Amino acid sequence: TGEEYIAVGDFTAQQVGDLTFKKGEILLAIEKKPDGWWIAKDAKGNEGLVPRTYLEPYS
């Protein structure tokens, strides 16, 4: 299990392996990579890379 984050903006996948999401979606951070791209999972179970700058902790 990971930590929940809320998307603060829309993001469209730029390449294969990225995860597209919309502002307000809750994402589960699976792995926090030091380069600023995290592996996350959305509510539908889709998994991919997301930019850290689009996420804020969800409580």
Rank of each mutant, 00 (worst) to 15 (best):
G2M: 13
G2D: 10
E3Q: 13
E4H: 14
E4M: 15
E4P: 14
E4G: 07
E4N: 09
Y5A: 00
Y5V: 03
I6P: 00
I6E: 04
A7W: 01
A7C: 09
A7N: 01
A7G: 04
V8D: 01
V8C: 12
V8G: 04
G9D: 14
G9Y: 15
G9H: 15
D10A: 07
D10K: 03
F11R: 07
F11Y: 14
F11M: 04
T12D: 11
T12N: 11
T12V: 11
T12F: 12
A13Q: 05
Q14S: 11
Q14C: 13
Q14G: 09
Q14N: 10
Q14H: 10
Q15M: 10
V16A: 13
V16E: 14
V16K: 13
V16M: 11
V16Q: 12
G17K: 04
G17V: 04
G17Q: 06
D18V: 15
D18Q: 15
L19W: 01
L19G: 01
L19Y: 01
L19F: 03
T20L: 02
F21E: 00
F21D: 00
K22S: 08
K22Y: 10
K23Y: 07
K23M: 08
G24N: 06
E25I: 04
E25Y: 06
E25F: 05
E25T: 08
E25W: 10
I26K: 07
L27P: 00
L27A: 00
L27F: 07
L27Q: 00
A29C: 14
A29K: 03
I30L: 12
I30R: 04
E31D: 12
K32Y: 07
K32F: 07
K33V: 06
K33N: 12
K33A: 09
P34G: 11
P34I: 10
P34W: 09
P34Y: 10
D35S: 09
D35N: 13
G36I: 04
W37K: 07
W37A: 04
W37M: 09
W38F: 07
W38E: 00
W38C: 03
W38M: 08
W38G: 01
W38A: 02
I39H: 09
I39R: 12
I39Q: 06
I39A: 05
A40R: 01
A40Y: 04
K41Y: 05
K41T: 07
K41D: 00
D42A: 03
D42W: 02
D42N: 14
A43L: 11
A43Q: 12
A43F: 09
A43I: 10
A43V: 10
A43N: 10
G45N: 06
N46E: 08
E47D: 06
E47M: 15
E47K: 12
G48K: 00
G48H: 02
L49T: 13
L49Y: 14
V50C: 06
V50H: 01
P51V: 03
P51S: 07
P51G: 05
P51I: 05
R52I: 11
T53A: 14
T53F: 11
Y54W: 09
L55M: 06
E56W: 10
P57H: 08
Y58Q: 06
S59E: 11
S59Q: 12
